[in-house]
Design a protein around this nucleic acid. Structure first.
Lengths: 336, 336
DNA sequence: TTGCGAAATGACAACGTTGTCATTTCGTTA
DNA sequence: TAACGAAATGACAACGTTGTCATTTCGCAA
């Protein structure tokens, strides 16, 4: 509606239109209480008429901060949606926006590169989502003035980290088996480069060894049902196999289908636990007991950790978000 | 290593340290060819020693652009990961970062609000991901200087839109049935507020009506397998039901399980097609034929559309990304 | 009405970069 | 060596906002 000659409407334009000074316009925006109502109205009308919007660059230049948190996606997988959702919601709540960059498919990216790129963008702090190992993990030094949080199950010497307690979740599942009279637990892994698979395997090993049980050779899967099915065929022939822990629900389902095809029943002959609790979405009346991680919570924690550390970027903490065992009927109690 | 007295190292600091002028430092960064090599080296050393990083705010203030594209997530669901992945990759390739905000869970957000918030952030253009209807959709006017692309199956009077061809995909699936001798197709819908479900239903209707077939009453589902199972139980009792189109793979699987439990075989007795082609991840040896949309491609197109329109924000286009029918064996050819 | 303190408003510099234009330095030819 | 054009470098303003400090206006009591 209004005349639109200049490209961008500045506070000065508003000030002239409203017949007040530049500073008064600034005050109307940032400290409205300190401006007389009649003046405020004039300014508001002028802003409306001219279609004024604060200039982000000028504002942050003056303030020395952006109100944005950087997010680097090294890897974007299924569970990442909920995590991003958590990050975004928490950011929203605390008045931050997100600035996002991503490792390009097929390209390598080190933490140092990611940090260098991010630090040229509008960010007050940053979150790295790191689900696979990266070359310079141990040697990486974060910019001293930019709080950096890494979402990863590994511990970092200098940066704060946040992670699902993958290891604890796996231990919990194993103990659930063992407490119900199972003498051993077989394991089907995910893709071997995935840290979550590695950690789940580690937790499984630890739980067995804690009870003096020698862990059997783990079966290698690739997250998908077919690899679980293949593993299930192998396991069906092992007479001592009464309990199987699969590194995700899809493979767990593959295992169950293979067992069934081999004439075995779950849970009567073999008990199974998976991870992620998502099978119920795809399988009606799903019976699979599963370890569920709270990815959303993970994102929330990561963002809060960054925001909390904005003033003290070199602080360091380690947060573990515990998993939950969602019980259904795929585990038999052998003591009964 | 270097002394760190000031909070931020500016070009001026570098210039002093290198014994050159401010402008020369600027040139080393932006037009290295125009600076003598010996000078360039001095400046580079100084930058290194002081840990200089260009100040985003000052730079964009001067340039009048940010190199960032805004992304508003009205709704974050499963398929969104791949789309975000596509947006992020395409952005990366074209040298843009992403600025992201999200509708808060449980809160309403209009397009106008989203645009107002985004236009105060560092963005040169923006993408709205809109998978449900929003109050001000038809009346919304985008900021005249900010290219706006909406990812949505609906047509917008003023903004460019990008979408999967949901309707076309559904038509394609129906015709696939009809061309194989089926006389009718039943439909199981997703959540009714979801635009994708609405469009899939619309395409299904259109395909049947185009052949003079009266579409049967659609069955209401909620995307999950259990609702598909319930629908399957109903359909199993309909003697004229030889073909079922389910609005996603999970429900399709539910339908198939119900049919099986009712003693019917897929595809011998009833044929089934789903959407999204993701069942194979969860079910070993999956037989389900499914319409797959290229979400990644969708994201890439959306980003490219924004970038292409940066100079002419008021331009308007409509992009449809076609789906693909992934054939497996869940459809019987009745003509054989 | 005058005087006074408080409230409201304004003038100006500064944030760190890049564009414009002027100046210096260099390499070459007469 | 002098003179010249090209290459390299520098001085200064400008982008649009906010902080500091000075000035004006207001409401109220004397």
């Amino acid at each position: 509606m209004a005349t639109m000659d200049k490209k961008n409407v500045s506070m000065n334009d508003v000030a002239v239109a409203a017949g007040v000074s530049l500073k008064t316009v600034s005050r109307v925006i940032n400290e409205p209480g300190s401006v007389r109502e009649s003046t405020r109205d004039k300014v508001h009308s002028a802003m409306e008429a001219l279609g004024f919007r604060t200039n982000f660059a000028a504002r942050s230049l003056k303030l020395g901060r952006y109100g944005c948190i950087g997010v680097v996606l090294f890897h974007l997988s299924g569970g990442a949606v909920d995590m991003i959702d958590g990050i975004a919601d928490a950011a929203e709540e605390r008045g931050f926006a997100l600035t996002m960059i991503k490792k390009r498919a097929g390209e390598k990216m080190t933490l140092a590169e990611a940090a260098r790129r991010m630090s040229q963008l509008p960010v007050d702090g940053m979150i790295f989502n790191l689900r696979q190992m990266v070359d310079d993990f141990d040697t990486f030094e974060a910019p001293k003035d930019l709080k950096t949080v890494i979402i990863t199950p590994m511990e970092h010497p200098a940066c704060s980290t946040v992670s699902d307690d993958q290891e604890g979740g796996a231990r919990m599942a194993c103990e659930y088996f063992l407490n119900r009279g199972h003498k051993n637990v077989y394991f089907v892994s995910g893709k071997k480069e995935a840290l979550s698979s590695q950690c789940r395997m580690k937790g499984w090993r630890a739980a067995l060894e804690a009870r003096g049980i020698e862990p059997p050779e783990p079966l290698q899967g690739d997250w998908n049902a077919d690899s679980g099915y293949a593993a299930g065929l192998v396991l069906a022939d092992k007479p001592d196999c009464t309990a199987v822990l699969a590194a995700n629900d899809c493979m767990a389902n593959g295992v169950m289908m293979a067992l069934r095809d081999k004439g075995l029943s779950v849970p009567d002959d073999v008990s199974v636990i998976g991870f992620d609790d998502e099978l119920y979405k795809t399988i009606p009346n799903s019976i699979l007991t599963s370890v569920k991680f709270r990815h959303r919570e993970l994102g929330v924690r990561a963002l809060n950790e960054v925001v909390a550390g904005l003033e003290a970027p070199s602080s360091r903490s380690r947060t573990l978000v515990s998993g939950v065992l969602v019980e259904r009927s795929s585990v038999r109690d052998l003591r009964a």
